[in-house]
């Protein structure tokens, strides 16, 4: 009698081994990789990635995608710093940033969930809309902030650990809980498994799409705010291409495009893998251009591998299930 969680663990076992191997390799090969200072900073990058990726995981579990995540990060960082520069209180500035993410998320959810547009193209369009709005809002400039609180959000420490570590720990726990234990989480898995079955079971699918995309938007905005905090400035290119890393993280973590299976645990390991790779490559002395190409290649290979493994798995399942 095997438990679900157990079989889930079996699926990510290989990935876990890969992560460990990569970690050991980088520790020996890359000077300065294995050290508290570096690893603590890697952890920060990891958690920013993970916050955005947890929203994306929910979307991909639904069998959809959110291309706008990176642009939403940019937009949120701009909105927050811009509001600060207009003299708004930090609380309103942060709220404004999150609201921007929520609005783009709502638009995504509406286009995909209610109007039934192709999810790739719809979110690709909102991606450029968000990016465009960010560019227009900041007029193409970097907006610096003098808020200590924003800086603290990005770089401050509590008990020797970055603020984001505590924050993300709580957030991710909640996300994990919501996605596996609550009615809403169950609905996401059901719709991803088969939208028709979910609908026949009386689930209002469009609502779930709306809420999930809004959550993904807010989490992406949160990631953007942390990025802004790190530099204490807003930048319309902060999230350029970030959605690509995020999608790759989710796929590497074993949540396939067709949705319905996988989850946040895998995404976490996928994120660790990607962040170690990124950091290790720069520690190994690759120029940013090389990092850019190599990571892109690694991601593409991961996606191809994921697709082909899933093809085989699907064929295997088809043999057993008449669907």
């Amino acid at each position: 009698m095997k438990r679900n969680d157990y079989s889930r663990y079996r699926e990510i076992k290989g990935l876990l081994a890969g992560v460990l191997l990569l970690f050991v390799f980088m520790s020996f090969a890359a000077e300065g990789f294995f050290g508290w200072y570096n690893l603590h900073n890697v952890l920060k990058d990891l958690l920013i990635l993970m916050i955005v990726a947890s929203g994306m995981t929910l979307v991909i579990l639904l069998g959809k995608i959110d291309m706008s995540a990176g642009s939403v990060m940019s937009l949120a960082s701009i909105v927050t710093t811009l509001l600060l520069s207009y003299g708004f209180h930090i609380a309103f500035a942060l709220l404004g940033g999150l609201l921007a993410g929520a609005i783009i998320g709502l638009l995504n959810g509406y286009l995909v969930g209610v109007l039934n547009l192709n999810h790739f193209v719809a979110t690709f369009a909102t991606m450029s809309i968000a990016k465009g709005l960010a560019l227009v809002a900041c007029n193409g400039d970097i907006i610096s902030s003098d808020s200590d609180i924003l800086l603290f959000i990005g770089t401050g420490k509590i008990f020797g650990l970055f603020f984001i570590v505590w924050f993300a720990a709580i957030l991710l726990l909640i996300m994990f809980f919501v996605s596996t234990k609550t009615k809403f989480g169950y609905k996401i898995y059901s719709i991803g498994g088969s939208e028709q079955v979910a609908r026949l079971s009386g689930i209002k699918t469009s609502n779930v799409y709306l809420v999930t995309y809004v959550i993904a938007g807010i989490l992406a905005a949160l990631g953007g705010i942390f990025m802004a905090g790190k530099a204490n400035s807003g930048n319309a290119t902060i999230g350029d291409g970030y959605e690509f890393s995020v999608i790759a993280t989710v796929l590497i973590g074993g949540t396939p495009f067709e949705g319905g299976k996988g989850g946040l645990l895998g995404t976490l390991i996928g994120a660790i893998f990607l962040v170690i790779l990124k950091n290790g490559l720069s520690m190994l002395g690759f120029t940013p251009a090389w990092q850019y190409a190599l990571i892109g290649l690694a991601i593409l290979i991961a996606i191809v591998a994921d697709v082909s493994i899933n093809e085989r798995r699907k064929a295997e399942e088809k043999r057993r299930v008449k669907l």
């Binding site: 286009l111 690709f124 450029s128 465009g132 007029n139």
Partner: peptide
């Protein structure tokens, strides 16, 4: 700077 946003809108 509006270009990106306009392209996106046109697609939608």
């Amino acid at each position: 700077l509006w270009q990106d946003a306009v392209f996106g809108l046109v697609i939608v």
